[in-house]
Simulated scan of single mutants.
Amino acid sequence: MTTSSTAVIDSPTELEVVAGVDTHADTHYVAVLSATGARLGNLQVPARTEGYEQLLAFIRSFGSTRLVGIEGTSSYGAGRARYLMSQGVDIREVVRPRRAQRRHGKSDPIDAYAASAQALAEPETLPMAKTGAGIIEQIRVLLGVRRSAIKARVAVIRQIRSMLITAPEAIRSRWEGLNERCLVESLASTRPGRATDLVTTATGHALRRLARRHQFLTVEITELEDELRILVGRAAPAMIVTKGYGVITTATLLVTAGANPDRLRSEGSFAALCGASPIPASSGRTNRHRLNRGGDRQANWALHQIALVRLSNDERTRGYAGRLRANGKSKKDVLRYLKRAIARAQMELEI
């Protein structure tokens, strides 16, 4: 079911219009403005293919489409953004307003009109949406699964260590002092007896199950990394053979850039996206910059890992870092300079 409110206009085909879309799990709300900011109409449609078609037809009924601003192009608005891109519509990612900025209240029509107004007023500053397709999307979904598997495996080994602290003395003394690999392998191969007999056997069963879960997650992570290695080799062969770049760091940076890196206007915009751009922190006689704590933190982690590897193995990087330290830069400053330089080189490798 759809709901709409439409203004009466003359000769709609002569107009150039801008639209904004407020996205939700089940429905999307679109609002259309003229190039002068006049409200032309709004419509609610279902978040399905027929709704996408209906939304685009509604926008085009007012005239030629200059731009569409969408909230959440990487979440609820992902399907909508992909459909509109396939129809040749220029898309921008609209930033949700802060609560303090919602002086006129909040509703789907209000949010949709706010998105369209933002797209009309700031077309050059709003980021272009990712396409969410192709090999980069394959890398993104596999990388996300690997990340959750890593977290689950860390949680498992922590639970094993915690359980051993409170385990019966016979169990605690038996497995004391083993490293993670030996501990997991040893626990996975035990045969503690029936779990319902004693506390000791129940604890042994629990530890064996946790160890086998750890092993299962390790196999899953290894398989994911093998698949990612193939995909990354296809997507960015020049990057993966560059010193300091590993499979996971390269995959992370590729996902951050997206399948359409041309949406990044400069290497400076990519550095800002990765949280590697310098932030002024000057006051009075102090003139300096500090680390950027914004941006994509996973991408920032990837740049940090690459910088550490190069500091360990690359003579040119060591020389560069040495010159910075000689000029009075701190260790944090050196890493900031290195991450910024790596982000610049990243764009030169045509991610």
Rank of each mutant, 00 (worst) to 15 (best):
S4W: 15
A7G: 08
I9W: 03
T13R: 15
L15T: 05
V17W: 06
A19M: 10
A19W: 09
V21Y: 07
A25C: 04
T27P: 03
Y29M: 13
E50Y: 06
G51R: 05
Q54V: 09
L55I: 06
L56H: 08
I59A: 12
S61E: 03
F62K: 01
F62T: 04
S64F: 09
L67P: 03
E71R: 04
G72Y: 02
T73E: 09
G77S: 04
G77F: 03
Y83N: 08
Q87C: 13
V89I: 15
I91P: 00
V95E: 13
V95G: 00
P97D: 14
R102V: 12
K106H: 05
P109R: 04
I110A: 11
A112T: 14
A112Y: 05
A112R: 00
A117W: 07
A121T: 03
T125S: 13
M128E: 14
A129T: 04
K130R: 14
G132Q: 10
G132I: 08
A133I: 12
L143G: 00
V145D: 09
R147H: 14
S148H: 07
I150G: 02
R153E: 12
V154Y: 09
A155K: 01
I157H: 05
R158E: 10
R158T: 05
R158D: 10
Q159G: 04
I160G: 11
M163D: 07
A170M: 12
R172S: 14
R172F: 12
E176D: 11
G177E: 08
E185M: 01
A188V: 11
A188I: 15
R191D: 15
R191Q: 13
R191M: 07
G193Y: 13
A195I: 03
T196F: 13
T200Q: 02
T200L: 10
L210V: 04
A211E: 14
T218G: 04
I221R: 03
T222M: 12
L224N: 02
G233W: 08
R234E: 15
A235V: 06
A235D: 01
A236E: 08
I240C: 04
K243T: 15
V247C: 04
V247R: 02
T249P: 02
T249G: 10
V255L: 11
T256M: 08
R263K: 09
L264T: 00
G268P: 04
G268N: 13
F270N: 02
A271T: 01
C274V: 06
G275P: 03
G275R: 06
G275N: 09
A276L: 11
R285W: 05
T286G: 05
R288W: 07
R288F: 14
L291N: 00
L291M: 11
G294S: 10
A299V: 00
A302D: 05
A302M: 01
I306L: 05
I306T: 00
V309G: 00
R310L: 15
R325Y: 08
R325K: 11
A326I: 09
N327Q: 13
D333I: 02
V334N: 01
R336I: 08
R336W: 05
A343L: 06
A343Y: 01
A343V: 09
M347C: 06
E348R: 09
I351T: 08
